[in-house]
Write a protein that binds this DNA or RNA. Structure first.
Length: 1064
RNA sequence: GGGCCCAUAGCUCAGCUUGGUUAGAGCGCUUCCCUGAUAAGGAAGAGGUCGAUGGUUCAAGUCCAUCUGGGCCCA
């Protein structure tokens, strides 16, 4: 495609906008422009002093390369700050990087080929942590590149790093607040632990290592020792099921469900206590095949009645004082097993919680290497899983084994060495979040969730079942827990290096607060004369990120005022997996430290899947690399996909076709409209400074387009205010379609003529839609702003991203609904044309239209429809002219149903039996008709609105009808119409000839023609002026035979003539 | 094993809050039309038991229950 060239005196202030565009190149040019002009900084400076709208960036963990899913969250994190900035707010956007934690350590261990803590200790903690730090910096670079490339405006120069000394000290300060409130304590916790590697594992690792195994499944009798039931029934036992016989050594209690029904059952002279729901599973049918009674239920009672019932434990191998009775626990189910659950609190998280509620001790006979302690009889020194056989044998010999099976299930294994993991109680530091549960619930109540089902669904459930936060990790690369302990168990917590230095009597303000350096600092215990050393743990890195509202400001040592102005956030946004992650830690820490949640609005996104609906993973090889994806389609298109294709809250499939579609449908259509304006404004030439008639004096199409544009800005404003990017996107797409395929299509001719009203209208409409799109697609809109607006309207800002949201004005809803009607009628007209097989270029004389409201439409609007359909006259079909019209009726169930309820079908049937013409005439004359209908009480009154009427002309016309509106086309082609049709055919042929000859749109031509066809001769003589005008011909000359001009094209069979075109 | 979300055309998705008798859009497919911005546009057509079953209702894609399948989170 060639660019249009212009003579010097024809330049307007618009830049040349080529009709084709390479979005990738365009985006890189825009990035360079923003860089050169410091646009983001200008936007921040310009909004300084305005009301703040606060956004918190959830820091991505810098432990790997960013993926396409990061574009999703970042598109949302970008659009709302941009939108709010346009709405007059100052939106601080500080980037952040999550630096600590097991994911980083694991990545480094992998790089170094390590297989556990021993390797790290041998390598040296200082060296290892240095590698972690280096790995973080490396991965942050990749995130920075992604962030810049996609146009996510966030202040990366002032980014917070959770490994920064000031950040860590801020975290320490908050921990001290919590500690002082008595909510930070040391306790036991059960966590998955690899006995071979000697380390606990995170949930993330756990998920990678499930393997299917076959374990023993044993049912064991626990004899009941004392109490009323034990006296009443001989040999009474609790029947208990477990798949981990090795934990029976540590049996501490038996749990039952308080609300379930239990019973005493007699079978073969033995008595058992089991859940009633499970009797048949355990004992089979009550009646044997030969009719004898197998067992008998003696009595039933609720689980609560068993509480505190003492029993004889299965093994007396280790000492567990004050234990061995029945406790109540809600988590017990009666879906499998016996309904009585063996409790070993050292090896089960649920067990630990339930047993702790009864003050039971936690006794752990397993050494850190996974073997039973050597002094224990029977199993001492055995690996825990290997002990199952010996223990089961022993139970069998003592007659306590009721049944023995094997059980297939998935069990977590170490993903590195495939050793079965052990759930293992270890001392651990906790934040007692359960103590502030009510406050958390109250804060959640005030929070606006999008979608709101999360609030009391997934997230609310999580809060309701809140457990204390296990804060500590026995690891290396993390924020050290700032607690020093002396041999007398006195605890001292510090809030800063300054405080620590004072206590230690050393100047350490420049000390790296990480391990191992911090571990070397000892202090004299303030409570006694012993020396206190730091406890070895680091903290959960989720605490780091949850502390960012204040830690990012290095509060309270720095930025006290800033912090107050920016707490809590108006907006946070992450994917749904953060409900229990960052969304929780943010709210919990905010509530713990400031008694107020850290955010007011939260947008919770669904996950991104591949084209086949599978999760993207390196393992499956279906990962979409983000930068190549954006370079292929453009970041704007990818952003648009994330923001507006499908529900953001739902998991969505992302694929090339969907994104390519966005480019074609939205971005290129928009771009071409821009190119169109530039082309004709420059051709005219015209610039906004040249002026245009006031809007109310412009043609109806102009007034309509502008009212549509104003509606658009109001509706998109409303959608984004409610965090609904999908709706906003749909509205913009519809507008672009209206603009390109209705307004420009209908108005094209006025642009050829360089009409200021049309140019000014399109200019203004493009400005509004450009502003509305700017937060979605910051690149293409910026380029358009530079090309169409920056030069032509010097009073406007230098960047679309420095502009305000378009001001609102009252839309003309009458005009909008009139246009909708006109467009519906146009559609019917096109349909009628298509069925008639008379081509659109052939003018027709008249059409009859029946549609409510049609007769009230302005002549100007009717003329638009007539021209679009190439029909001379559009008449209203007169219903009273019953020779021409046939009427069909359908009952309107919506209005009838509301009035008649159950009797609706009777009324509807009655209506459809009436003569349609008579009924409609009567209703139009009188307004209502009364019927007496069988089965319906009293008189039934029918009104016009109770009917859906379709009026169609009788035979001989080409008809299209839909939903009560119809269009009938008179197909008679008079000689005069035929000539007019031929004239248009000739124009089209000549235009094509011009195009083939490569002429510019403004080139003038001379045309020669020859033909023996009398119709052609008549057409050219009758319509010659019109034709010349259309094709910019200075002359239209008949010649005996065609002279070879600039170009010659072949004979059109229908026209039967030869033409020659020559550039004038 | 528990909780939450989802299921609509060959594909990607609207519609469900507030029930109304012809369930839409885009892509793809077939035929035709139109084309001095457009990688466009228009018309017609093929393509749907709205996951299944039951219920509520005069009326269910829409409300309720159960089930099946998929996803996520947690064990």
């Amino acid at each position: 495609m060639k660019f249009v060239s212009f003579r010097e005196e024809h330049t307007s202030m618009y830049k040349v906008v080529p009709p084709t565009v390479n979005l990738r190149d365009l985006e890189h040019e825009v990035l360079a422009l923003w860089q050169a002009e410091g646009t983001f900084a200008a936007s921040m400076a310009q909004s300084q002093g305005r009301p703040t709208w606060t956004f918190y960036e959830g820091p991505p963990t810098a432990n790997g390369a960013p993926g396409t899913h990061h574009i999703e969250a970042r598109a949302f994190k970008d659009i709302f700050p941009r939108y709010r900035t346009m709405k007059g707010y100052h939106v601080v956007r500080q980037a952040g990087w999550d630096c600590h934690g097991l994911p980083v350590e694991l990545a480094v261990e992998k790089e170094l080929g390590f297989s556990g803590k021993k390797d790290i200790e041998n390598y040296g903690v200082a060296e290892f942590n240095a590698k972690c730090r280096e790995s973080v910096v490396r991965h942050v670079d990749a995130f920075t590149e992604l962030t810049t490339r996609m146009g996510y405006w966030v202040d990366m120069d002032r980014a917070y790093w959770t490994m920064d000394s000031n950040y860590i000290q801020s975290v320490w300060w908050s921990l001290k607040q919590i500690f002082n409130a008595g909510l930070l304590v040391q306790d036991h916790r059960v966590s998955p632990y690899c006995p071979r590697c000697g380390t606990g594992l995170s949930d993330h690792e756990l998920a990678q290592g499930y393997e299917d195994v076959s374990d023993p499944s044993v049912y064991v009798r626990f004899p009941v020792k004392v109490g009323a039931l034990a006296e009443k029934y001989s040999d009474l036992s609790l029947l208990v099921w477990t798949t981990t016989p090795w934990t029976l050594v540590s049996n501490t209690a038996v749990a039952v469900k308080p609300t379930a029904t239990y019973c005493v059952l007699e079978s073969a002279d033995q008595h058992y206590i089991v859940a009633q729901d499970l009797i048949e599973n355990l004992f089979g049918s009550p009646i044997d095949e030969d009719g004898s009674i197998r067992y008998q239920v003696k009595e039933t009672f609720p689980g609560t009645q068993l509480e505190h019932m003492a029993y004889k434990r299965p093994f007396d191998l280790i000492d567990i004082p004050d234990s061995h009775f029945v406790i109540l626990a809600d988590y017990v189910t009666t879906g499998d097993g016996t309904g009585l659950v063996h409790q070993a609190p050292a090896f089960g998280a649920d067990d630990l919680i339930s047993c702790r509620a009864y003050g039971l001790p936690v006794v752990n006979p397993i050494a850190p290497d996974g073997t039973f302690l050597p002094e224990i009889p029977l199993v001492g020194g055995q690996f825990f899983k290997k002990a199952d056989a010996a223990l089961t044998d022993d139970l069998r010999e003592r007659g306590l084994l009721f049944r023995e099976e094997s059980y297939e299930h998935s069990y977590p294994h170490c993903w590195r060495c495939h050793t079965p993991l052990i759930y293992y109680a270890q001392p651990s530091w906790y934040i007692k979040t359960t103590a502030i549960k009510d406050r958390l619930m109250a804060e959640n109540e005030k929070t606006h969730w999008h979608p709101d089902t999360i609030k009391w669904g997934r997230y609310g459930d999580w809060l309701t079942n809140n457990v204390d936060w296990a804060l500590s990790r026995n690891r290396y690369w993390g924020t050290p827990l700032p607690i020093w302990r002396c041999e007398n168990e006195h605890l001292t917590i510090v809030e800063s290096l300054a405080e620590l230095g004072e206590l230690a009597g050393q100047e350490i303000s420049d000390l790296d607060p990480h391990r191992p350096f911090i571990d070397d600092i000892t202090i004299p215990c303030p409570h006694c004369d012993a020396t206190a050393v730091r406890v070895p743990e680091v903290i959960d890195c989720w605490y780091d990120s949850g502390a960012m509202p204040f830690a990012a400001q290095w509060y309270p040592q720095h930025n006290k005022e800033n912090f107050a102005a920016q707490y809590p956030a108006d907006f946070v946004c992450e994917a749904i997996d953060q409900t229990r992650g960052w969304f929780y830690t943010l709210m919990a820490i905010g509530t713990l430290v400031f008694d107020e949640s850290s955010y007011k609005n939260v947008v919770c996104l669904g996950h991104i899947l591949d084209e086949d609906g599978r999760k993207m993973s390196k393992h499956l090889g279906n990962v979409l690399e983000p930068i190549p994806l954006m370079d292929q389609h453009g970041a704007d298109a990818v952003r648009w996909f994330m923001l507006a294709s499908g529900s953001p809250w739902q998991s969505r499939r992302v694929g090339h076709t969907a994104i390519a579609d966005i480019v074609r449908k939205n971005l290129l259509t928009y771009w071409n409209t821009v190119s169109f304006l530039s082309l004709y404004a420059r051709s005219a030439p015209w610039s906004p400074a040249d002026g245009a008639p006031p809007v109310n004096e412009r043609p109806i199409m102009d007034r309509w387009l502008l009212t549509q544009a104003h509606s658009l800005s109001a509706q998109v404003d409303n959608a984004l205010e409610n965090f609904d990017t999908q709706l906003g996107g749909r509205l913009i797409t519809e507008f672009i379609d209206d603009l390109s395929n209705w307004y420009v299509r209908r108005t094209r001719r006025r642009f050829w003529e360089g009409e200021p009203a049309a140019l000014a209208t399109l200019h203004e409409a493009l400005k509004i839609v450009t502003l509305c799109m700017a937060p979605y697609t910051p690149f293409i809109t910026e380029r358009v702003w530079q090309d169409l607006f920056r030069e032509t309207q010097p009073d406007l800002p230098n960047s679309v991203h420095l502009a305000d949201w378009p001001s609102e004005s009252q839309p003309d809803s009458q005009l909008q609904s009139d246009m909708e009607l006109a467009r519906r009628v146009t559609e019917l007209g096109r349909s009628a044309r298509a069925t008639s097989s008379v081509k659109t270029r052939q003018p027709l004389g008249r059409a009859l239209i029946s549609a409510p409201g049609w007769s009230e439409l302005s002549a100007e609007l009717v003329a638009e429809v007539a021209e679009e359909l190439n029909v001379r006259e559009l008449l209203t079909l007169d219903v009273s002219d019953s020779d021409l019209v046939s009427i069909s009726l359908k009952p309107n169930f919506r209005t009838l149903g509301a009035r008649f309820g159950k009797q609706t079908p009777l009324i509807a049937e009655h209506i459809s039996r009436q003569d349609p013409t008579e009924l409609v005439s009567a209703l139009r004359d009188i307004g209502k008709v009364d019927y007496e209908i069988d089965g319906v009480d009293g008189t039934s009154t029918i009104e016009l609105s109770d009917l859906v009427i379709t009026e169609t002309p009788v035979e001989g016309w080409a008809v299209a009808a839909d939903a009560g509106e119809s269009f009938a086309l008179d197909l008679e082609i008079t000689h005069e119409l035929a000539l007019a049709g031929m004239a248009r055919d000739i124009v089209r042929s000549l235009q094509e000839g011009r195009k083939n000859a490569g002429l510019e749109i403004s080139d003038r031509i001379n045309v020669t023609w020859s033909s023996d066809n009398p119709d052609v001769v008549e057409t050219l003589s009758f319509h010659g002026g019109e034709i010349s005008n259309e094709v910019l011909a200075l002359s239209l000359t008949k010649v005996p035979e065609v002279i070879t001009g600039f170009t010659v094209f072949g004979t059109e069979s229908e026209i039967d003539a030869n033409f020659g075109i020559e550039k004038a």
